[in-house]
Write a protein that binds this DNA or RNA. Structure first.
Length: 942
RNA sequence: GGGGAAGUGGCGGAAUUGGCAUACGCGCAUGACUUAGGAUCAUGUGGUUUACACCUUGCGGGUUCGAGUCCCGCCUUCCCCA
């Protein structure tokens, strides 16, 4: 007896989502009687449409959050929008839509798409970063940092994007190009707002108390780039040329250099200043002025990547001046060269060609002296004949009193030679130990409109003051006009610009806005109380929910968003923003230590990226007339590659690329041909009636990032329409290694479709036996508990594919057992119950529907996670794997409790085993008892 | 150039501490049902071999009773940094 009710996602998914909303199922409220779990997943930018990548990131995160909830945690899983940023402004300029209108329309659309995921987002906690009730607090944070000495306005060489008409943070520049548009970025000296990022550099190197992935920790550590060394003061020599290496010159202006190898100070044969170094202008001699000026100008046009590229030919110009080396009074020429950056260290280096390969190449090219100062045992270095720099371990030579000291090649105090020199430098007053970080201060101002205003007023006298708290937020004016000047409309919006200072005098507002990373550095605090008016967050909520327990998102945010967030949490801590929260925590008996840590997220997990699907291009036979190397085709026919003609006057092969009517065809053997399809050409494609068009020819699609221009975008809305939300969720979790991602495959989703249909049938269209068989029912129970074990582990460890695989396996097993006919109603109902509970995190709609059909009380998502019972999962009989010399030779069914003596006895008596033992007893016997669900093994060594 | 991650069937991918490699799924093959099949069901499916058996986790070594997993040396791909 079966009925024909069929699984129809459309009829159940919307219904249950509405019910969940009505009943406030996902409202999360502070409840000190329950343990909390703050699950956070990265929020989207409202670009217009939800991408499959959002589904890939968010739905497994949702499954994990749901699992934690069923495990008994009070779970907060919020969602919002990172809504400030350039795309909105570009849309405004290109399409004449106000950024606010564009952004809000997109958010409306995306909320619907987000809801279709069936995630347990608590929408009442939604935050939108471009909403004044949010950015009021972004501005407030800026003020706090400014007043707390963590923000300053300063002149610096910054990355200017001519394309975007704004400056960018270092983190937003990749290979000298803007990371969003890939357009070149130039260096420009400008007055900008900075946060003291390096303040917490040292603290941010410590990951010992958080569970973050190793690659992220490595990336952040490299990005912070701690190096230990010394700052040493050199002086410009007052006496000019010509005495080349004279001693005891009169000392002129001092300048500092930074070096990680103070033990090589005696090997300095020239100095190099960054072309932008302020000293350059002062010390350049008359004769060298022209060459220096030209070089400085040329360098200004280069990107940092060009300047420091490894294989690049070394360039530089002598300033005509000399410096005096404090350690030995040596007089060495001062050069400028583009490989020295003004922004790193002091913008000046000492060059030790015998110990640094770049200095070495530079010295060789310009005929500068090379003085070996570190020499390994048994070697004899001669500056004139050395072929490359030596930076390994060795003994100091040519170094005055330090000759004979051993330098072990390490950096910092771990090197005895460096340690000795550091002490000596300090004692003599020549220099001091110094820790340098590659990390530079965080540039937060942007010359754009669509961002949070910086609450600063420029007074008539040139000084600045902050906007009083009661006047926050400084709101973005709505009536702006986007002129194609490239300038932010704030700079010519008079009502915005003109204001008064605290003494009532006319003043002007700051027109720069904040980097959107500023908005996204604190958003999870706002989720706690998105409408709270007395502060950025309500301490009562914060005391319960903070910090974030699990954060999920892409690894590409390592050196930007994630590092900014860690800085922000520390700044907030040190400015006392958590003081009240910590007090409340204590009142509830919770240790506030976890906030003193300064870490915003205790656990981080990264998902990979879903890439475009690989697709073969059409295989064609094209004929026409050849002109030069190009075929002008008047006939193109798509054929099966197997039917390819052996000889053809035209072109035969797979279409690799198609631009309009120009085809690039792979004719095999690594060769390609260009075919231009004539407008009147006959194009034949099987499956397309009559004459097809050239633009219907499909080209080969490689595995690469999805993008509209490549035509390999997978639209989740279409998938949901076709398969239902549960299937899309389950496929994304099943078909990939979540941490890795990979290319989309449109065929493999059918396995998930079958699984869900089978589950539907198992629950709605099957009838258990009237009379149960205890042995079969014991099997059912065993399989269920084995599955509980696996699914629990997999959800715990974010290995979603394994969890679904285990559930699919359970489907296979239950189907099999049902067929044997020994499963009674009670047993069946229990098995189905547990299976549905385990499916609930992955496929929340069908689980809820079938739960209700089974007559269980609403809602499945409020039930407890099934408890694994090892005794119930245990097998009675297991396979004893018998190996001879490590090779599996026989499998014997034995009781699960088998011990070594009995196992050996059975194995030795076994005919197949005996054959492999030849004659004679085994030399050695290794028995591995069955454990953790594994079979016992016996290895006989002969 | 430096750092990191990875390499397992035709494909996506499994494999707690070293313990039956290839779970689960796709695809494919054969059969059944069917007017039909891109539905469903059944069976099979790493390679070589008639078979016994042998080989197999990028390549080459090593440790071990036993290695996808640990160690050493290479190769390739991806990511980050220069």
């Amino acid at each position: 007896m079966t009925d024909n009710r069929k699984y129809d996602p459309k009829s159940i998914e919307g219904k249950w989502r509405a019910r969940w909303d009505e009943t406030g199922l996902y409202r999360s409220k502070v409840d000190w009687s329950k343990p909390k779990h703050y699950a956070l997943t990265m929020l989207p930018y409202p670009s217009g449409d939800l991408h499959i990548g959002h589904w890939f990131a968010m739905t497994p995160s949702d499954a994990r959050a749901r699992f934690m909830r069923m495990k008994g945690f009070n779970v907060l899983f919020p969602m919002g929008f990172d809504a400030f940023g350039l795309p909105a402004e570009n849309a405004a300029i290109q399409r004449n839509i106000h950024p606010m209108k564009w952004t809000y329309a997109n958010m409306d659309r995306m909320r619907g798409q987000l809801r279709s995921m069936g995630a347990m987002f608590d929408w009442e906690r939604e935050m939108v970063s471009c909403d004044p009730i949010y950015y009021k607090w972004t501005e407030w944070f800026f003020k706090q940092f400014y007043e707390g000495g963590l923000a300053y306005r300063g002149e610096a060489l910054v990355n200017w994007s001519p394309t975007l008409q704004t400056v960018l943070a270092n983190e937003q520049v990749i290979d000298g190009k803007d990371e969003r548009t890939g357009q070149p970025v130039v260096q420009k000296l400008m007055t900008q707002w900075f946060f003291r990022y390096t303040r917490y550099a040292e603290e941010m190197l410590d990951f010992s108390r958080i569970d973050w992935p190793e690659p992220i920790r490595v990336m952040e550590t490299n990005w912070i780039g701690k190096s230990e060394g010394a700052r040493v003061t050199f002086h410009v020599a007052l006496t000019p040329d010509p005495s080349p290496t004279g001693r005891g010159e009169e000392k002129g202006e001092p300048f500092e250099i930074y070096t990680t190898r103070p033990d090589t100070l005696w090997g300095v044969s020239f100095m190099v200043l960054a072309p932008e170094h302020p000293l350059v202008e002062k010390i350049t001699t008359q004769k060298q002025q022209k060459a220096i000026r030209e070089y400085v100008e040329k360098t200004a046009r280069m990107t940092e990547i060009d300047r420091t590229a490894e294989g690049k030919e070394k360039t530089g110009v002598w300033t005509g001046a000399y410096a005096i080396n404090p350690v030995n009074g040596a007089k060495v020429p001062i050069w400028i060269a583009d490989y020295v950056m003004i922004s790193y260290g002091t913008g000046a280096i000492m060059a030790v060609p015998s110990g640094d390969q770049r200095d070495f190449e530079f010295a060789r090219k310009f005929g500068l002296e090379i003085i070996p100062v570190i020499q390994p045992e048994g070697e004899h270095f001669d500056g004139a004949t050395m072929v490359e720099a030596y930076d390994g371990a060795g003994f100091m030579i040519n170094s005055g009193d330090f000759n004979g000291h051993f330098s072990n090649g390490e950096k910092g105090r771990k090197n005895p030679a460096i340690s000795a020199v550091l002490d000596w430098l300090a004692e003599k007053g020549y220099g001091k130990e110094f820790v340098n970080y590659r990390l530079r201060d965080w540039l937060i101002s942007r010359q754009r409109y669509w961002g949070s205003p910086i609450p600063i007023i420029h007074k008539a006298d040139g000084t600045m003051e902050t906007v009083p708290d009661d006047q926050l937020p400084v709101e973005l004016p709505a009536d702006v006009e986007f002129l194609p000047t490239g300038r932010s409309p704030l700079t010519y919006h008079e009502p915005f610009l003109n204001t008064v200072d605290s003494s009532g005098q006319p003043a002007r507002r700051e027109t720069d806005t904040m980097d959107t990373f500023m908005c996204s550095s604190w958003y999870w605090y706002r989720y706690l109380s998105p409408k709270y008016e007395k502060g950025p967050f309500d301490p009562e909520e914060a005391a319960y929910w903070l910090p974030v327990d699990t954060y999920t998102g892409g690894a590409e945010h390592a050196t930007m968003h994630l590092l900014y967030s860690r800085w922000f949490a520390r700044a907030m801590r040190d400015l006392g923003m958590f003081d009240e929260t910590m007090k409340i925590m204590e009142q509830h008996g919770r240790d506030p230590e976890v906030l003193k840590l300064g870490e915003p997220m205790l656990q981080l997990r990264n998902q990979g990226q879903v890439l475009g699907e690989e697709r073969a291009g059409h295989f064609i036979v094209a004929t026409g007339t050849w002109q030069a190397a190009k075929l002008f085709a008047d006939s193109v026919t798509v054929i099966n590659p197997a039917d390819a003609p052996a000889n053809s006057a035209g072109v035969v092969g797979e279409i690799i690329k198609r631009t309009e009517n120009i085809l690039t065809v792979d004719i095999g053997g690594g060769e390609t041909r260009t075919v231009e399809v004539q407008p009147e050409a006959t194009v034949t494609i099987p499956g397309i009636e009559g004459v097809a068009r050239a633009d219907q020819l499909k080209h080969h699609l490689e595995i690469q990032r999805m993008s509209k221009s490549k035509g390999n975008v997978i639209n989740p809305d279409i998938l949901v329409e076709k398969y239902g939300s549960d299937t899309v969720r389950a496929y994304l979790m099943f078909g990939f290694d979540w941490a890795k991602g990979g290319p989309w495959n449109s065929q493999q989703i059918s396995g998930v479709v079958r699984w869900i249909n089978d589950v539907w049938d198992l629950v709605t269209n099957t009838t258990p036996a009237a009379q149960g068989n205890p042995a079969v029912e014991r099997d059912v129970e065993r399989k269920v508990h084995q599955t509980i074990h696996e699914v629990t582990d997999d959800l715990e460890n974010f290995t979603f594919n394994g969890g679904i695989a285990a559930l699919m396996k359970l489907r296979n097993e239950l189907r099999e057992l049902l067929k044997t006919g020994g499963v009674g109603a009670e047993s069946w109902r229990g098995a189905v119950r547990d299976m549905l509970l385990m499916m609930a995190p992955f496929t929340p709609h069908i689980a809820e529907e079938l739960w209700a059909q089974q007559g269980h009380p609403y809602s499945i998502h409020q039930q407890n996670w099934p408890v694994y019972d090892a005794a119930k999962a245990a097998e009675d009989e297991v396979t004893l794997v018998v190996q001879v010399n490590g090779k599996v030779r026989e499998r014997i069914m034995v009781p699960a409790t088998i011990e070594e003596a009995r196992a050996t006895e059975l194995a030795l008596a076994n005919e197949a085993v005996q054959k492999w033992l030849a004659d004679g007893a085994p030399k050695k016997i290794i028995f591995i008892p069955g454990r953790n669900g594994q079979e016992p093994k016996l290895n006989l060594v002969v």
